[in-house]
Design a protein around this nucleic acid. Structure first.
Lengths: 217, 217
DNA sequence: AATATTTTTTAGACTAATCTAAAATTTATA
DNA sequence: TATAAATTTTAGATTAGTCTAAAAAATATT
């Protein structure tokens, strides 16, 4: 069984690699884990010995099929717990992340399946991120950052990046939630800021914000 | 903040001391933690330095007021999670203990207060054990082991000892649950086995079992 | 009361995860 | 392309929690 630390490193590698699409450098990983490169190298060797990642010295790491499955199991737990916290315990979405970071490490397959059932088998978490199913299948939605679309775009918000609690508070304030309709009225060339219609209200968004809102046309 | 290991040792000391009523010997503690006396001594020194227990070399340890408060916070979390698992996720009471052992170490005051509210501020857990309130107050019920009462006794089951999963499965089979009425019809002098009326059904109980059923008259 | 037994503590070693400093390797630049 | 700069790895040390073996102290027994 993986230690808590191993699980956290593996999850970080999984996310940094965009779900296994690209390889991850030692320094990136060290920064993501708020640790030093030497520590990352040590852990890389451990995970590599367990065949959860493949590793070529000096050229970064990739998750193996086995590693991806383990990482997805953790992601599944994280997102189910976030859903529980918001839906059942009335947490706001900016509060859930750090608690879910702890809850995701509880080991009990029975618990997570029961929780899934209790929540009604949700497909996405409160940020709009897809929840892997019990077999580790992840449905990736076709979506794009709101900073990538042109003036005139119409669609719905599919997800928001959940990296920063202050961002989430702001998104909550302007009620930019997954599921809502959004239309780009105007795009300012100079700073790429947007004027959008969100839930029938006119809102101005800086690029700093719009790149964290994911939409589907 | 306490480490997971420190929390587990402190909780063990709290339980072994009957909630602070008596002192705990190094060997008792080592056995409860499935470890060696030398390890227990090391941890005793650490907890003592943090003033969670008081310690006189060779004569065992006692929890301090501070230590008792910390231990009760862990007990509160454990029992609330057990209640959640049984009431909301349909776990049977023999399954909950080991999962609750993990969940009790999640650090988030907000989480536990929300959970308490979600569960409707329960007073006791599924085994009948009282749940400390948010201020660390524990209501101890006047109760006695069923092996201590005389033939003719009538009362209700207030709790069952939750030490052993097989015992709990057996108690579940004969439906000896907290809250049920119980009457002792006859007590066999030789082996102290009992013939009881439980939920209007006649059942025979060995002393091995009866001592794990707590009743109030 | 002297000795044997049991319990507890100390001393020293081991593993996991971390660190700093130095060495090795790759990448960038002049 | 030789050298400088950046990145990565290695080497050796540190901390938390554990262990075994030996020493110290308390308790039990003759």
């Amino acid at each position: 069984m993986l230690s808590l630390t191993e699980e956290n490193y593996l999850k970080a590698i999984y996310h940094l690699s965009d779900g296994g699409a690209k390889s991850v450098l030692t320094n990136e990983l060290a920064e993501a884990m708020s640790t030093k490169a030497a520590s990352a190298t040590d852990m890389i060797k451990k995970l590599s010995a367990k065949e959860l990642i493949s590793y070529e010295k000096y050229y970064g790491v990739n998750v193996t099929a086995k590693g991806k499955a383990e990482a997805l199991a953790v992601v599944r737990k994280h997102r189910l717990w976030e859903t529980f916290l918001v839906q059942k315990l009335a947490f706001t979405w900016d509060e859930v992340h750090e608690v879910a970071e702890q809850l995701e490490h509880i080991h009990s397959p029975r618990l997570i399946d029961k929780l899934d059932e209790f929540l009604g088998f949700p497909k996405v978490d409160p940020h709009g991120d897809p929840i892997p199913d019990g077999k580790g299948k992840l449905k990736v939605l076709p979506q794009v950052g709101l900073d990538q679309v042109k003036a005139g775009f119409q669609g719905i918000i599919t997800a928001v990046k959940d990296s920063d609690s202050n961002l989430l508070k702001y998104l909550d304030k302007i009620s930019a939630k997954p599921g809502l309709k959004i239309k780009v009225i105007n795009k300012e060339e100079y700073d790429e800021s947007l004027e959008v219609l969100l839930d029938n209200k006119k809102v101005f968004l800086s690029k700093e914000v719009s790149k964290n809102i994911l939409v589907s046309g």
